[in-house]
Design a protein around this nucleic acid. Structure first.
Lengths: 328, 328
DNA sequence: AACATTTCCGCAAACCATTGCGGAAATGTT
DNA sequence: AACATTTCCGCAATGGTTTGCGGAAATGTT
């Protein structure tokens, strides 16, 4: 079967293409009788508007771009899932691209977004991106960009972030409620905006407690976190390990299991996470929630505002929430 | 800045649109001098072909559809990641939609794929889909559909599956190498094709070992698996628990941890998984690998064959592989 | 019956890129 | 110099949809 087009319908019905087009969108110019005929035929012929033609004519695509370093990540997948869900409800579709943390691919992907005339782009910066020129170009073409999670450190753009400071503060508060004296805090890639913010806030929180020993380390991935925690734990057993992310947590948990340590008895644990990993273990790991889902919903609603032209560039925060487990 | 179009370039250079178009694709009709001028200007003006116009004219989009029940899943995310990666290398982009296991949404999504004139669709059936009419329509429009993971139980279509039988056989073999007498096997949703195949193969493998007690249960999600394993373990402690998937495994591990059981000492564990979850634990859980990544790569290369018209409908298998951990 | 309104529909341009065909200019051949 | 070739480029149609504008037919008004 060929594709059904307005033209085909118009020929069968012996009316003009424009009448068909208008009838299909309930334009008042078209009489009810004609309208019904058209709609019925369109129905039986399974008419489906050609999205390319529509977009070409209206310059208004129902496509959104979404770029992350990799889809395969506990956090991003929930973000993506939430965005796609909301998008569907609003008639938008999502085109998903991965940067692989490669700025060159990131640039290519932006180009693809432009070529496909997406109506907006959600993006989490690759960890090594320093040049924002590609994103400038989006602005020139009036394509709104909503950054999330790892965002550029400039103002005048749309960003959706975790309440990084608050989550670190929450963590600090919780730790201070216990008599812990020695803390090992493992953070991720120090180039990431989230790392910087969380680290600064945590340090800040303990500044007024000089008696508490705070040791800070950085791991670029789970394996590094494992190695670091292992060598650290060989020298000295802190009272608690704070993990900045699931990635770090995974490495730390490996070490703890390998060493046969039990939490919270031998050592306490606290992490920032969306919950997936903490909930796999028993006792459940206590965590400060960074919900990719919440962030996704917030990002989408903000994107809608951007598209409709009523959103000033600003930074929105997803609130941090303590989820009690049994790890401290 | 406005969008750069062929027309704009042609006006600036004082030549025709068609010449610009041809120059940009190195058509031999265009002299080197003109060609260079065009290419240079296009470069400085950041010319980017309008994908909609191209697709409208050529009826050949560089878009692929991918539909899964949810993106947020240990297995699908790796599949998606692999497909997107390969697609990018071949100049394709991926439009990702979720069905939420709802046949109605599934239908809507297929419609979206058609409207966007995707060149092909990867899809994992929603668990409750019984009617394949929506997919018929794809065939009518000559849009190749490659099913993966949970696939329709009919022939004459393209499907990429795990070697479900083999993986169950591998599991059985491994179990039989140990003196286990009592097995608890927990499967997922009994409607899924993968469930049926794996279950049948496992039963088959133990048919010739009537002295071994094989108890089969079904869980629709992790929580059910947890409940089931919990109540089972209260009555009777099997020698080994076999889990059909990560989802099941997660629930079982919860129970095991809650009861303070240790594997492989108190009870042995074996699962089918892509490895993410098994590797989080120590000792690592032994698993039969179902690599979403491998499946993704295979699916993509098969899709390419389909698009190029040289692929008969058939079922391709991703080989099963034993990954030794320390759980049995 | 003559005029003013309203109702309903079609023409044609526009969006942007692609491509078969034909034609002018430049070059080659005798 | 007259013709045949080759080189290079433009015309115009095409793909499917949207939309401003104008016009014919139907209805209403006096």
């Amino acid at each position: 079967m060929q594709n059904t087009t307005l033209k085909k319908i118009s020929e069968i019905l012996g009316i003009s293409i424009s009448t068909v087009s208008r009838a299909l969108k309930h334009h008042p110019d078209i009489s009810l009788k004609t309208r019904q005929k058209v709609i019925d035929l369109a129905e039986t012929l399974d008419y489906e508007p050609n999205a390319s033609a529509v977009q070409l004519r209206t310059k208004n695509s129902k496509l959104l771009g979404l770029m992350v370093p990799t889809v395969s990540n506990y956090f991003y997948e929930t973000f993506i899932s939430a965005v796609e869900e909301d998008a569907r409800k609003q008639g938008y579709s999502v085109m998903i691209l991965q940067s692989g943390n490669d700025p060159a691919i990131e640039l290519d992907n932006l180009k693809l977004f432009r070529q496909n005339r997406v109506s907006g782009v959600f993006t989490c910066l690759s960890s090594s991106t320093t040049d924002l020129k590609g994103f400038e170009r989006m602005r020139e073409m009036d394509i709104p960009v909503v950054f999330f999670d790892n965002v550029p450190d400039v103002s005048g753009i749309h960003k959706i972030c975790m309440a990084d400071e608050k989550s670190a503060q929450l963590a600090a508060e919780l730790i201070l409620q216990h008599p812990y004296q020695s803390i090992l805090a493992i953070f991720g890639n120090p180039q990431l905006s989230i790392t910087k913010k969380r680290e600064a806030a945590l340090q800040q929180a303990f500044q007024s407690h000089p008696n508490i020993q705070l040791l800070i380390e950085h791991a670029h991935n789970s394996d590094e976190a494992r190695t670091i925690s292992n060598s650290m734990l060989n020298k000295h057993l802190p009272d608690i390990i704070f993990c900045m992310s699931d990635e770090v947590l995974i490495g730390v948990l490996k070490t703890i299991q390998e060493k046969g340590l039990r939490y919270p008895d031998n050592i306490a644990l606290l992490t920032i996470s969306n919950g997936t990993i903490p909930k796999l273990f028993h006792p459940q790991i206590t965590y400060i929630e960074t919900s990719g889902e919440k962030m996704g919903h917030l990002a989408f609603s903000h994107m809608l505002d951007c598209i409709n032209g009523n959103a000033d560039p600003k930074e929105l925060l997803v609130d941090a929430l303590l989820v009690q487990g049994g790890s401290l």
